[in-house]
Amino acid sequence: EPPEVTEMTKATQATRAALRRRFLLTLAAARGQPVTFVLCQRVRVSAVLGAAWVPDGTEVGGHNGSAAVAFQVDALQTPLGVQRAALLRGRDVVVFGFQMAEKWRK
């Protein structure tokens, strides 16, 4: 028996989709950009974002959810030198940031 689809469920799903869409657009915009990551212990590293892996939601559950993201980066600048390619675990990342121009602005 499929669960009953209530108005509340529909509203939640529509909101979920809109929020998720914006998040995926954010990741798409960050691709290929120079990105600064703040890691545990306030360590800052810079790199070019190659790809971000985020689960579709089906993998979450049971686990604490924090392993839900990973970042593939190029030209990772570390105190030991530049790593040509690297994978950052989501749970080691506190925040990441990048800049983008507002092309549409007059």
Binding site: T26, A29, A30, N64, G65, S66, A68, V69, G90, R91, V93, V94, V95, F96, G97, F98, Q99, M100, A101, E102
Partner: peptide, 12 residues
């Protein structure tokens, strides 16, 4: 300056 985007990971 360009728009600044920050993503704070949910676990943090």
């Amino acid at each position: 300056e360009p728009v600044s985007i920050l993503v704070v990971l949910g676990h943090a």
